[in-house]
């Protein structure tokens, strides 16, 4: 791979500092440029300034939660950007259907480990744009 490749800009959106820290640890050292957002509102503002390649999106957050961000982002920026991977716990599996129907590209369940996070993010980044 040529060294001039732009790093993937990934926005970690979760109100849990632990989850952001873990995701950061897993992705650091790979070809990612990382940024944090503690809720959907902040994430939306950051997207408007500079579009991330991919957003890791928690479901339950204060101020603006995952589904609200998802709907607003698809409305404002369209279906293809940014790629969105919804992140929820086992008890939130019912939300996954709603998330996928509202334009999420994939989901990941907490607790996740490094290989799973890498696989999910590269999976959605490699997927062709929707028609």
């Amino acid at each position: 791979m040529p060294t001039t490749t732009k790093p993937t800009y990934c926005l970690l959106t979760d109100d849990s500092p632990t989850v952001r820290k873990v995701a950061r640890r897993f992705l650091q050292g790979s070809d990612y440029e990382l940024d944090d957002a503690g809720n959907g509102q902040i994430a939306l503002e950051k997207c408007a300034i500079r579009m991330p390649d991919v957003v890791l999106l928690d479901w339950n957050m204060p101020v603006m939660n995952g589904i609200e961000f998802l709907r607003a982002a698809r409305e404002q920026f369209g279906r293809d950007h940014p790629k969105i991977v919804v992140c929820t716990t086992e008890s939130g599996v019912d939300y996954i259907r709603e998330a996928m129907a509202s334009g999420a590209d994939d989901y990941i369940i907490k607790p996740f480990d490094a290989p799973t996070l890498h696989a999910k993010l590269s999976g959605v980044l490699a997927a062709p744009a929707s028609v």
Binding site: T18, T89, I109, P111
Partner: peptide, 15 residues
């Protein structure tokens, strides 16, 4: 197996 996944998910969320 189900409970450990759930509790670990909660622990990851809450720290």
């Amino acid at each position: 197996d189900a409970t450990i996944r759930k509790l670990a998910g909660d622990a990851m969320n809450s720290g």
